[in-house]
Design a binder for these strands. Structure first.
Lengths: 359, 359
DNA sequence: TTTAGCACTTGAAATGCCTGAGTGCTAACT
DNA sequence: AGTTAGCACTCAGGCATTTCAAGTGCTAAA
C-alpha cells in the first residue's frame, strides 16, 4: 500500500526477482513453504529477514506468492511459476553423462516409431523422476496410401494398409476358398478405388461399383471394405502411452487421496489428455519448442496442481507426436525442460535420419 | 487343548463351515473384522454369540481365521479364503443383463486379438470393479512363417512378417534406389531361407549365403536380416495390458501408502507379472479352467494381500493369452470368478469362430 | 531504507482420557 | 456334553487439551 507498485504489476526490482527465484527454487527442492529466515542463508540475497519479509509481502500482493496460512512461509503461485519459467529460470546444462545416456539408449532402438516412443518415455520418466507420456495426435484426415493382400492359406488372407507411413493389418477369413487370382484382382481394385479416401468417403455406390468389377468374387468385397473402414476409423483416434505412473506417489502432498484417483482415471481414460495435445497448437502451425502448462492453464480440470511439459516430435517437418512429462507444479523445471527438449529432438532426428541412411 | 480337533485339520463340522462362510462373506462385503455378535443376525446361524465365539476360537486355532488385535473381530486368513473358494462358495449366476452386456460389448469388436483383449479388460474391470489385466504369454519358439515386402517408394520398403498368426512390420530404407526386381528376389530368398527359424538360428554363414544369392544387390541383405532378427527378438517377450488401475484406490486398507507404490511398480515393470502367467501351467498342459491365486500363493512378493483370478484363452486348442482381474484378498470371489469365466470363454469363442465364418 | 525486536497467530505433534466393540472365561442351564 | 448368559479385560479410535516452533506483521531504532 506504500507509494511504490501496490498490486499493479509494472516491473519487478532486481531484488524482488532474486527473492522470488530463490523462493521458487527452495520450494521446488524442499516441497515446503519457505520462510524469510531460511532465505537469508542464500548467498545471492544480502539483506535481513525483515527486509525479505517486506519484499515477500509485496510479492504476495502482486500475486506471485501465496500463504497457506498465517504462520507459514510463502509458496509460489501459478503466476509465480509462470514468471519463473518465462524469465527467471537458469537453463540447465545436461551433463556429458546424461547426454550420453540419452543417446545410447535411444540408438539401440532403431525400429518403428512406436518402440522408439516407448524407449523415450521410459528414459524421460527415469531421468526426470516424473511421469512421462508420449502422444500420437489425432489425425485430421486418415487415408490409406497403399493396400496389399497377403495370402496365408486358401481361406484366409491378411490385409495390409499403409496409413501415413504406419502399417496396419487386418485378418480376413472366408468360408469358401479364395482364388489367388481373385485376391490379386481385389488388391488392384482397392488400390485403384480407395487410396486417398477417408472412411467417410467410402460410400455404398463405390462399394457396389467394386463388387461389379470383382465379378464372380464379389462376395469378398463387403467384408474387406468393412474391415478397412473399421481399421481406418480405429486409427484416427490418437494414441497415448505412459511410463512411471508410480512416481506420482513421490509427491503425496499433491497426489494424495482423491487427487491421485482423479489422476489415474485421467490416465486411463486417455481421451482428455489426448485432447490437450490436439487442441493446442500441435495441430496448427507451431514453432516446435518446449511447451509448458502450469496448473490452471491446463484445459483439464484434474490437472491444476500439475504441470505438463512437452515438446512436439516432427518428421520431415510434419508433426507425428509429442513427448513430455507431467508432475507437480513444483517440478524441477530447468532440468525437465532440458531433458524433454533434448529427448524430443533426439527422437525427431532419429526418425528423420532414418530417411537418409540405411543401417 | 480340548478333546476335539485341536489344530489338526480333519474335517469341519457343518456349523463351522457355515460360520466361516458367513464371516468371509461379511468381511468381503464390509471390509472390516467381523465379530460374534454381528453373526447372530445371519439367518443361517441359529446360536448365540457365545457359541459363535467358541467356534471362532477353534477356527482360529485351525488357521482359518486371524485376529488383528485382541479386541477386534476376526478376519479370514489366506487358508480361510482358499477353503472358501475351494469348497464353500456358492457359484454366482450372472444376470441376463450382465450376460447381455458382455455379449454385445464383445461382439462389436470383431477385429484382431489385440483389440478384442482391450475391450475385454475394459469390460472385466468395469463389471467387477477391480483392476483387470490380459496377457499374451511369452512364446517358446518364435519363427516367421511368411515374409512379404511392400514397396513404398524407390528407396524404401516395408517388411511384413507373419509370426504365429500375428503380423509384424518393419520399415527398411536404403540410401540408393532399390529395384523392383531386387526386392522381389529378396522376398523369395527370405521365404526360402528364413521361414521356420528362430532368431538364434539365423547364422552368419546363412546370411552370407543369402548375400551370394542376391548378387549385385547384396547390400540389402544385412540391414534386412538385422531388422528381422530384432523384430523376432522383440516379439518373444509377452505382452501385458491393464485397465482400471484406479480401482486399486477403492481399497485403501490394502493398497495404501507403500503398498500402492509397489503395486504400480509391478504393473509398470510388467515382467514379474508376465512371469506369473508363464511359470504356471499356462505353458504346459492345462485344463483351461479359472485359476485363483490367493495372497502368498502368488509367486510375486508384492502380491500378498492380493488375489489374482484368471482364465486362459485358447484358439484351436492352443493357448494364446489369458484374461483376469487382480484385487484385494477380500474380493467378491463368486462374482469375479463367474465374470472371468464367462468373459474368457467369450473371447475364445469369438476368435475361434472367426476361423469358421466370414462376416 | 534497512534492521532488530517483540507480540501474535496458528498448524502440527504430543498427551491423556474415555468409550465401545469385542473377546475369553467361568458358571449356570438344558 | 453342548449351549448360553454374564462379567472382567483389552485395545484402537476419537476427542479435547496442551505444548511447541515456525513464521509473520508491525513498530521503533539505526
Amino acid at each position: 500500500m506504500g507509494s511504490e507498485n501496490s498490486g499493479s504489476k509494472r516491473e519487478l526490482s532486481e531484488r524482488k526477482k532474486q527473492i522470488l527465484k530463490a523462493i521458487i527454487e527452495a520450494h521446488i527442492e524442499l516441497g515446503e513453504p519457505v520462510g524469510s529466515k531460511y532465505l537469508t542463508s542464500n548467498k545471492h540475497i544480502a539483506c535481513s529477514s525483515a527486509t525479505i519479509r517486506n519484499e515477500m509481502a509485496e510479492l504476495e500482493n502482486m500475486g506471485y506468492l501465496e500463504q497457506p496460512h498465517t504462520s507459514a512461509g510463502r509458496v509460489p503461485s501459478e503466476a509465480g511459476y509462470r514468471l519463473y519459467v518465462d524469465s527467471l529460470i537458469d537453463s540447465y546444462r545436461l551433463t556429458e553423462r546424461e547426454i550420453e545416456e540419452l543417446r545410447t539408449s535411444l540408438r539401440k532402438k532403431q525400429a518403428e516409431l512406436d518402440s522408439i516412443l516407448d524407449t523415450a518415455i521410459r528414459l524421460a520418466s527415469s531421468m526426470t523422476d516424473y511421469t512421462a507420456l508420449a502422444a500420437k495426435p489425432r489425425k485430421v484426415r486418415v487415408t490409406v496410401s497403399h493396400f496389399e493382400i497377403i495370402r496365408t492359406d486358401e481361406r484366409s488372407m491378411i490385409l495390409v494398409l499403409l496409413i501415413g507411413g504406419i502399417v496396419k493389418t487386418r485378418a480376413i477369413r472366408s468360408r469358401v476358398p479364395i482364388g489367388d487370382e481373385a485376391s490379386g484382382r481385389l488388391e488392384a481394385i482397392l488400390n485403384k478405388k480407395l487410396t486417398g479416401l477417408t472412411a467417410a468417403e467410402i460410400t455404398m455406390p463405390l462399394m457396389m461399383e467394386m463388387e461389379r468389377e470383382m465379378g464372380a468374387d464379389e462376395y469378398l468385397v463387403e467384408p474387406v471394405v468393412k474391415g478397412i473402414c473399421e481399421t481406418i476409423s480405429a486409427f484416427d483416434g490418437g494414441e497415448l502411452r505412459f511410463d512411471g505412473i508410480d512416481r506420482l506417489l513421490s509427491y503425496p502432498e499433491v497426489y494424495g487421496g482423491e487427487r491421485l484417483r482423479d489422476m489415474l482415471t485421467l490416465f486411463e481414460r486417455k481421451q482428455d489428455l489426448l485432447d490437450v495435445f490436439s487442441e493446442t497448437e500441435m495441430q496448427t502451425g507451431d514453432d516446435g519448442s518446449v511447451k509448458i502448462y502450469i496448473g490452471r492453464e491446463n484445459l483439464v480440470k484434474t490437472m491444476d496442481n500439475s504441470t505438463l511439459v512437452y515438446k512436439p516430435i516432427k518428421r520431415g517437418g510434419i508433426l507425428v507426436g509429442a513427448i513430455g512429462v507431467i508432475g507437480p507444479t513444483r517440478m524441477n523445471y530447468s532440468r525437465v525442460i532440458a531433458m524433454i527438449d533434448h529427448l524430443s529432438s533426439g527422437v525427431s532426428n532419429l526418425i528423420e535420419e532414418g530417411d537418409e541412411r540405411s543401417d
